[in-house]
Simulated assay, not measured.
Amino acid sequence: MKKILMGCLLAACGGMACLPSSAGAHALRAVHERQGEAVLVRFAYSDDRGAEFAAVRVIGADGKEFQNGRTDARGRFAFIPDAAGTWRITVTDGMGHKVEHAVEVAATGKPAATAATAADDAGSSAGLPLRAGLGLSLLANLALAACLLRRRKAA
């Protein structure tokens, strides 16, 4: 019985090691809006805290780098597109979070009126409380398994 339980525990740990890791509690998101000719993009984590001083790279509709820099203290970055098409803005915060956000620019040179959002590799639309509960549940189950193993060992 002890060998079976230990095998199950090792298999579970091995399975968890193969799962992709993500910082879902700090998913990086982007929202853009028009301000005259400029496109203002705000980058924020799931708790709505701005991604301050994160590295930004703007790729023009032609696929070439148009601009680079850093967000401000509130996680904002602005640029003025000079051609129609899809512009891509990539932001990395230096802590493993990265988001690529697309902005459609109309033939007039102004960004499309619709704001869009994007999320990083968290990949889950579940809310923060649900993800936190699932993480706590996982920890509780691992602690229970360790207690059962210790109890079996003592008997």
Rank of each mutant, 00 (worst) to 15 (best):
F53H: 14
A54G: 14
A55F: 15
A55Y: 15
A55S: 15
V56P: 02
V56Q: 05
I59E: 10
D62P: 13
D62Y: 14
D62W: 13
G63W: 13
K64Y: 13
N68L: 09
N68G: 10
G69Y: 12
R70W: 13
D72F: 06
R74L: 15
R74V: 13
R74A: 15
G75N: 13
R76N: 13
F77K: 00
F77C: 02
F79Q: 06
I80F: 09
P81Q: 02
D82W: 12
A84K: 07
T86S: 12
T86L: 11
W87Q: 10
R88D: 08
R88H: 12
I89H: 04
T90V: 15
T90M: 13
T92D: 14
G94P: 10
G94T: 10
G94R: 11
G96S: 05
V99L: 05
E100A: 14
E100R: 10
E100V: 13
A102R: 14
V103E: 05
V103D: 03
V103R: 06
V103Y: 09
V105F: 07
A106S: 08
A106W: 01
T108R: 01
G109L: 04
G109K: 06
G109S: 08
K110T: 11
K110I: 10
K110W: 02
A112Q: 00
T114R: 09
A115Y: 00
A115D: 00
A115R: 06
A116D: 01
A118N: 04
A119G: 08
A119L: 06
D120R: 03
D120M: 06
D120Y: 02
A122L: 05
A122D: 11
A122K: 00
A122Q: 02
G123K: 05
A126C: 01
P129T: 09
P129W: 09
P129E: 09
P129Y: 03
L130T: 10
L130D: 05
R131T: 05
R131A: 07
R131E: 08
A132E: 03
A132H: 03
G133C: 00
L134W: 01
L136K: 01
L136R: 04
L138C: 03
L138D: 00
